[in-house]
């Protein structure tokens, strides 16, 4: 456990060390390359900024209206308890839109049921195998101005559904 934490702390410094020492060995002009890349990165952020504003506003409004939470509740009522616990539906739904909001819900579940309860275990696994679909899709596609996303959304939902199902099964097993 301690080792794992150390590893996660040391991950980035080690990576930077490897990149730089490898570059020195190859006699790359590191600073010049860095500046060139940084300029590139800057341009990319500027190009996605309007997207982010638009997206976060829409999600913010939808959340503030209470629709997301209520929709999650309705879906929770429809899905049989044995297949997917209704307490966890909000986490699964919100996670598709906003990672920080989902984290808040996960912490609520930890507080209420404890991280080692069945629900606690399921949400922990869920958190590690799902992504913010809508956020990722809009940022990545808007960065290259693609509007027709074709089978990305069905595929993403499919993968997420598989991940959710797996979390519930695994969470009940351990």
């Amino acid at each position: 456990m301690k080792f794992l934490m150390y590893l996660s702390d040391a991950c980035i410094p080690i990576l930077l060390f490897i990149i730089l020492s490898h570059a020195f060995m190859q006699k790359t002009k590191v600073y010049g390359a860095f500046l060139e890349g940084a300029k590139d990165g800057f341009k990319t952020v500027i190009s996605i900024m309007p997207t982010l504003v638009g997206l976060m506003c829409a999600v913010g409004v939808l959340r503030a209206s209470g629709f997301l939470d209520d929709a999650a509740k309705w879906i929770g009522m429809v899905i049989p308890e044995q297949i997917f616990p209704s307490e966890l539906v909000p986490v699964a739904i919100i996670k598709m839109f906003s990672s920080s909001a989902a984290t808040g819900l996960v912490l609520d579940i930890f507080r209420e049921y404890g991280p080692d309860s069945m629900f606690g275990k399921i949400v922990s696994i869920m958190g590690s195998c799902t992504e913010t679909i809508f956020y990722t899709m809009s940022v990545y596609f808007m960065a290259v101005k693609v509007r027709k996303t074709r089978w990305t959304l069905p595929g993403a939902l499919c993968a997420t559904a598989a991940g959710l199902a797996a979390s519930v099964v695994l969470g009940k097993m351990i």
Partner: peptide
């Protein structure tokens, strides 16, 4: 994100030019 993006794309550029 601008800071992070500049930093990582810069690092990636180094890794790219060095062949890593």
């Amino acid at each position: 994100m601008t800071g992070v993006m500049c930093f990582w794309v810069g690092m990636m550029k180094i890794a790219q030019e060095s062949g890593l």
